[in-house]
Design a protein around this nucleic acid. Structure first.
Lengths: 147, 147
DNA sequence: AATGAAAGTCATGTTTT
DNA sequence: AAAACATGACTTTCATT
């Protein structure tokens, strides 16, 4: 039941409790109670807006593999990447690279700048970039049933 | 002004027009008109919920580079990756790989299964996986001012 | 029978349109 | 300004003990 509510809210976070209730056969207050509980228990972390980056002037995107010096901590990478507004995602990963950073920029020039700034971080030994040519799939936050 | 409204809605998609209006010194109806316009012009693509994947039982994540046969089209990759519910993102990229796929799975076993299914796609010649060890940064949809 | 969790109903102030 | 919505208080239901 909670799962269905979350799925509906994922599809449209601004739909009313009554609307959701109609779809899951529950009264509006019942839905609200569940949503409140889901929020305070941390399942729902918040509600956000899906913005078309291109419409706001951000047309270029890249994934950059970071190779770091031996004693680099995830915390260091977090702090460093958060300083750059172009970073929309950062992950430590297994494999050759130490981290993967997702960048969004206005254009190639801007991306190049951001990349230079990133490469200037003291713990970065080298990088490998993949520039996004086209976004094929991007699901906001899917909640498929866990098996 | 629209930018500030979008930023506020990004922070909380369920805040009321009155609330937003108070912060940007506009009346509630004025804010609504702007939001309606932003929606129909495609700047705002929708409203969604940020769910903690771990809280729903999805604890494993990976980025997979796809190497494809010569005559593979983006459309083919789109169709193929959409078939797999574990795919939360897919992009064609420049660089060694042809595409980058973002996967979310319940656990390592599930991830392995999904990966096997992906590798079985006829146009995939090989893959290279990066398993996410920790998510350091993940901004929902940031709207920094374009320069 | 008694407890507690969860749903329904209704009233009121707020928000949407 | 009218209709729809959110939200709190209160009651009911039902499963568990």
């Amino acid at each position: 039941m909670d799962q269905r509510i979350v799925a509906l809210l994922t599809a449209d976070a601004r739909s009313s409790y009554a609307e959701i209730g109609a779809k899951v056969s529950l009264s509006a207050p019942a839905v609200k109670r569940r949503v409140d509980r889901l929020r305070s228990s941390g399942v729902i972390k918040g509600f956000t807006t899906v913005v078309d980056p291109a419409a706001v002037g951000w047309t270029t995107e890249a994934f950059v593999e970071l190779f770091c010096t031996g004693r680099t901590t995830p915390a260091q990478i977090t702090v460093a990447t958060r300083r750059h507004p172009e970073v929309v995602g950062a992950y430590t990963v297994s494999g050759e690279a130490d981290a993967l950073v997702h960048l969004r920029a206005a254009d190639i020039g801007h991306l190049e700048q951001a990349l230079e700034r990133l490469r200037a971080e003291p713990f970065v030994t080298s990088t490998r970039s993949m520039i996004v040519l086209s976004r094929l799939v991007e699901t906001p936050t899917p909640v498929p049933a866990p098996e």
